[in-house]
Design a protein around this nucleic acid. Structure first.
Lengths: 129, 129, 129, 129
DNA sequence: GTGGTCTAGACCACG
DNA sequence: GTGGTCTAGACCACC
């Protein structure tokens, strides 16, 4: 369920976070679900347990996961909550890049056309990087 | 003319590259213009000459600048050329983020509205990061 | 495997680049192979880690190497790809020198004889400079 | 007669040397001809007199020019002598590049074909860089 | 441990 | 003065 891309430039802990958030947003990981243990997931993915630990820690500090020492880590966010969190981060990223585009002198219409094109061209399911 | 933000997480050498590319795109630095010398710019920005050197080197390997030992560094790219280079990179960044938005389940109309809003909200002149 | 010549006038970082490209072209460093770490290679060659870092950076910007922070640097180019890159650069160098020879008034036959002689005289394995 | 290319990466003093040697080889500057004075040539080319001085010095140490303090600089090499000097330097450059080609695994026939092609493609008169 | 960025300071060739 | 290379040593994020 949780997969990573060892070749990708994206840090492994971020790939894990993105993947878990994606699974929540899609309703695959539900509120209250238990995440795999740090050690078992590390084994499964053949990476360092510290990396998993970091991903879980960041998810906890975002309020998406609840780690109970000795018992495991559990999802505490509904897709709705998760959605608004993610949406905000995407908004800020999008704002940054649109700022760049404006600096370049790209007009609004050109930008919109562009977004439409990209949106339509994307395949329906893509691995989160 | 060339400014940096010491607080930004963007590496200084990248800020300098972005700034120079921006000035070329805007037609402020013209084809054939001489850039400030490595040492003088380092002094002006109060940073290490090596950092400027690195920025100029990368601009040279991108074919935007011509560095002549003992003579100075000169712009060799027209705004048009520069524009197409930058546009391509913005396109790929935009594609990546729109991919993310789709994964979240954001619809096309919502995305477009979003871009329009952001585009209109942006102040006219913003520091390149 | 990777060696340098401290006496040569060729910059160390270029010697390292050439050497690695040579090892790829020969199939000794294969697609996916991990390069020695920046620090370990620096230690082995008794030079500064920054010099190795620079070589790896340039190889990455050429698309020959993939550097993943915290994980290492990996070959991503096949010998075939590398071969065509190198061949092109050799072609242009050769063109430049043949142009000079023509300016001197050296005839085609003389040039060809010359190349043949040099080709046959070369020892089979020489250090890349 | 003596021209330079301010954009070229070749050092100015080398361009001047190459140009003078070319003019001798072609018989345009004859044995005993007086070269323009350092200052007048510097003025004419709008470059630093030191650069001309350096070029003349190197030509003198090669035995091609004789500089008589207070009187000027004179050609002392015949085209024949010059030819053999240049031929040697071209030989060593050619040897270096053929060595590289061999390292890449380029065969003798391929090399020869290549040289022939380049030789035939070259325009008859090209500026020495 | 890994790569990436930056500073400080030195030396070189070129003008 | 100019750009180019290299060393030494520091700090960062990531694994």
């Amino acid at each position: 369920m949780i997969t990573i891309d060892l070749i990708s430039r994206t840090p492994l802990y971020l790939q894990i976070i993105n993947r878990i958030e994606y699974l929540i947003a899609r309703g695959i990981l539900q509120d209250g679900s238990q995440l795999p243990s740090v050690r078992s997931l590390a084994m499964e993915l053949s990476i360092n347990p510290n990396t998993i630990q970091r991903a879980y820690n960041e998810l906890e500090s975002k309020g998406i996961v609840n780690s109970l020492p000795g018992r495991g880590s559990f999802i505490v966010a509904t897709p709705t909550v998760l959605f608004s969190i993610k949406k905000q981060s995407i908004q800020s990223e999008l704002a940054a890049i649109i700022r760049k585009a404006k600096l370049l002198g790209i007009g609004k219409n050109e930008l919109i056309d562009f977004c439409t094109q990209i949106f339509d061209q994307q395949p329906k399911e893509v691995e989160v990087k």
